[in-house]
């Protein structure tokens, strides 16, 4: 269970969230909202990459930022870019080493995303879709209990899109909490979502259970 209580967050003078409350059970949750409504910021705050001015975020009773919490979290977002001056293989090895996960898990997803011919390629030279595939590979291979994906379907080709949806359904089945932030409609994709959250200006959330 992800529990967010009394969350306050601002970028300079712009207050993004004030007193945000949210409880999410394991399952697939779709977070939508207009551009600039704070979807990506919310994901980064939950991932522990940005610090809220006030409030508490807990997952399985662990506080955000604590080692047991961070072990359970993975994020894929354009704002969390793999190191551009490294090769694809180098980045996979680096994350495998940091996460303490066998490289084979990463290679499995990389092959499914057709990244295997690009292993020696520098990340900076990858196309937009290829960079998205690499970012998804890194997030999916960690088998995280709290998986956050920011616009995961942008720029993906049909094969990659279908593999990504299948991988998300698998994560849902193994009891993970998957939070997808997207400005698109969930009906367009082959995923069965449990809850649709809509983020409105001022950081207000409306929740529709499905």
């Amino acid at each position: 269970m992800l529990s967010i209580q009394n969350l306050w967050f601002a970028f300079g003078q712009q207050q993004l969230f004030s007193n945000l409350e949210l409880q999410l059970a394991p399952g697939l949750h779709w977070l939508s909202g207009a551009n600039g409504s704070g979807k990506s910021s919310l994901l980064r705050i939950i991932a522990g990459l940005d610090k809220a001015q006030q409030g508490s975020i807990k997952f399985h009773q662990h506080q955000v930022g604590a080692a047991p919490y961070q072990q359970l979290v993975a994020i894929s977002a354009d704002a969390v870019a793999p190191l551009q001056d490294n090769t694809v293989l180098g980045v996979l090895q680096l994350v495998a080493r940091c996460r303490g996960i066998a490289l084979d898990h990463f290679m499995l997803h990389a092959r499914a995303f057709a990244l295997d011919p690009l292993m020696q390629q520098k990340v900076a030279l990858l196309s937009l879709g290829q960079q998205k595939k690499l970012s998804l590979t890194l997030a999916l291979a960690t088998q995280a209990q709290l998986l956050m994906l920011d616009e995961p379907f942008n720029a993906l080709d049909p094969e990659a899109l279908s593999y990504c949806c299948a991988a998300l359904m698998q994560a849902q089945q193994r009891g993970a909490l998957v939070l997808i932030a997207s400005h698109l409609s969930p009906q367009k994709f082959a995923v069965q979502i449990n809850q649709h959250l809509e983020l409105k200006a001022g950081g207000h959330l409306s929740i529709t259970a499905l």
Binding site: L49, Q71, V80, A81, C98
Partner: peptide, 9 residues
Amino acid sequence: YFVESLAPS
């Protein structure tokens, strides 16, 4: 962000 996301805590 990417490098910090890899930190254990």
